[in-house]
Amino acid sequence: MTPAPDLVDLRPGRQDDLEQCLGVWIEASAARDGRQVDGVAARARGKFDRTIAWTVAADRGGDVVGFAVGTPPGSGLASDPPGAAVLGLLAVAPRAQGAGLGRRLLRDVTGLLVREGYSRAVLHVLADNAGAVSLYERDGWVPWGDPVEHSLLRRDSQTYVRDLTLAVHHDVAGTSTPSGPRA
C-alpha cells in the first residue's frame, strides 16, 4: 500500500539507517529487474562509505521507505564530467512507489549537493528503466554521452547530468523556490 505523501518525512540519513536503506535498495532493485541479483547490496554498501549528501524517507513508524545518496566527484564513471557530484543511489520501496516520493528525494538530495557547493551533478540510470528515466528528464537532467554497459547487470546504462545552478525546485504546495550555490 502506498503511504500518503504527508505520512512520510524526509530527513538526513544516519549510520543507523544503513541496513534499512540497503534493504530498500535490494527490494526496489529486485522489483525493477524481476529478480534479485547477486552483488547488488555489496555494490550499494560501498557508496555509503563516500556519502556527501544522504536523504532518507521514513514513514511515521520510523521505517525507511526510500533514500537518496550523493557521493563526491570521481566516485562514478571515468567518463563523468569533471567536478560533478554523483547521485549514486536513489530508491523507493515498491510499497511506497507512486506517491511522488522519488521526486521528493531527488530534489532534496540535489538541494543538499547545492548547499555543499556543487554546481553540477551526474547520475547513471539503466536505459530500460522508463520510470526513472522519465523522472530524471522531467526534473531537468539531460543525457551525457553514449550508453555504457552496466558492469553488474550487463544492460545499457545512460549517464545524465544536471546543472544545479539553474535548478528550480517545487515544494509540495507547488510554489517555486530557486536553488543554487550561494553567492
Rank of each mutant, 00 (worst) to 15 (best):
G145H: 10
A130G: 09
V133N: 08
G140R: 12
G131S: 09
L112H: 13
V133T: 11
R155E: 10
D146N: 09
L152N: 08
E116C: 11
P147L: 07
D146V: 10
A121M: 09
W141R: 02
G111H: 07
P147T: 05
R104W: 03
L126P: 01
Y118P: 01
L123G: 05
W144N: 08
D108C: 10
V133Q: 05
G145L: 09
D146F: 04
E149H: 08
L153P: 02
S157Q: 15
L126W: 03
G117V: 06
V148K: 11
A127V: 10
D139W: 00
L106C: 12
G117E: 07
A130W: 06
H150D: 15
P147S: 08
V133G: 07
L105D: 11
E149S: 13
P143Y: 02
L112M: 13
A121C: 14
L153I: 13
V133F: 07
Y136E: 12
W141Y: 04
L105I: 10
V148L: 12
L106K: 11
G111Y: 05
S134R: 15
V125N: 00
Y136N: 13
L152H: 04
Y136P: 07
T110K: 10
L113G: 01
Y118H: 15
R107T: 08
T110M: 11
R107I: 07
D108A: 15
V142W: 01
W144T: 02
V122P: 02
D139P: 00
A127W: 06
L112G: 14
P147V: 06
G117Y: 06
G131K: 03
D108M: 00
V109W: 01
Y136M: 14
W141F: 07
V109A: 00
G145E: 09
Y118G: 03
R138D: 13
R155Y: 00
P143A: 13
E116Y: 09
P143L: 05
W141N: 01
R115H: 12
L153G: 05
G145Q: 09
R104V: 01
S151W: 04
L105N: 11
E149I: 15
A127K: 13
A130C: 03
L126M: 09
L106G: 09
P147A: 08
L153H: 12
A127Y: 05
R155T: 06
V114F: 07
L152Q: 10
R155W: 00
Y118M: 01
L126D: 01
D156P: 15
P143F: 03
R115A: 15
S134A: 15
R155N: 00
V142N: 03
S157V: 10
L123E: 04
P143C: 10
W144P: 00
G117S: 09
S157D: 14
P147C: 06
H124Q: 13
A130Q: 14
D108H: 04
D108G: 02
H124P: 01
R154V: 04
R107D: 12
D146A: 14
G111W: 08
G140P: 12
